[in-house]
Design a protein around this nucleic acid. Sequence first.
DNA 1: AACACGGGGTT
DNA 2: AACCCAGTGTT
Length: 356
Amino acid sequence: MIPAKKNKNLQISLLEWYDRAKREMPWRKTRDPYLIWISEIMLQQTQVKTVIPYFERWVSAFPTVRSLAEADESRVLKLWEGLGYYSRARNLRKAAQLVVDQFDCKIPNTLKEIMTLPGVGRYTAGAILSIAYKKKVPVLDGNVKRILSRLFRLAENGASTSSQKILWKTAEEILPEERTGDFNQALMELGATVCLPSKPGCLFCPLQTYCEAKLNGDQHLYPPSKPKALSKKIEVSAGVIWRGGKIYIQQRLKDGLMADLWEFPGGKIEPGESPEECLAREIREELGVEIQIQNKLMTIKHSYTQFRVTLHVYKCRLLKGKIKAVSCQQWKWVDSNLLSQFPFPAANKRIVDSLS
DNA sequence: AACACGGGGTT
DNA sequence: AACCCAGTGTT
């Protein structure tokens, strides 16, 4: 809980700052729910500067919900051209038709109803209700998350569901009774112009005397950075080749990634290739033999620093050919209960564990 | 909870 | 080049 007095003072300071420092934006000259709605959709993941010309053109082309509802989709998309996330435009048109048909041409003014419109999630719903209808409803976007995290030293970055929940709750608690729409916009404005992600301008911040992170001098620690996105995903096949009670393994080259470790043969699945096709190809290329795939043993997901690997593991046997391994230091046929003596990379280790 | 969706700005 | 951004819908 936020102490009532602190909350009140903080609200006053922020609103004073907003009145003084807010930037001019076309949608700040209106309280038409339709126009507020359009602006909020356009502003999703899109910067103000980019949105302004699109908004102006849109208002001229579709000044009312009805004009949008009656427009051809191709014309709507043409106006959106270059703005990205095109489903926003398609949803906007669909939602406009819903508003005309089911809500008597009026943008709904309750959270429950407005969120039935395609493209309107909790953020957008909160923005429209608070700005256009003066309802006391919070918003939570990237800016507000960052500010709340710093203001209350919340170790939340919004990554998990529970973290989201805490942030929404806080966004609600902090809300003033009056001027809720301005207050919400003020939070976002502060996040966009002062409380920046990397270099927060605390010296110019109207909330500097309330901000727990600033008071502790550790504002740079909030919000805690999200775990690095595991950008690249790769799919790999590996084969457990049995011959007379023994299993084939090979030792990786002495340089490079996971040097000198042992592994099961296999490789990366190429586009359009099935895991089985991949395995047969890789073994043909690396060992010079043909194999028969008997059955799938397991699927392993494993994260490396730079990759997230899905490893498809198959039990196989040799069909024909004599093994002559390339791109490995040496190879061995090993009794399954001796496999664990050899060092394997983590993902391969899980195959070993299942075999012994 | 992870992912796709897009383009532009920042580091 | 990676990361971030006034998010939402789908799986």
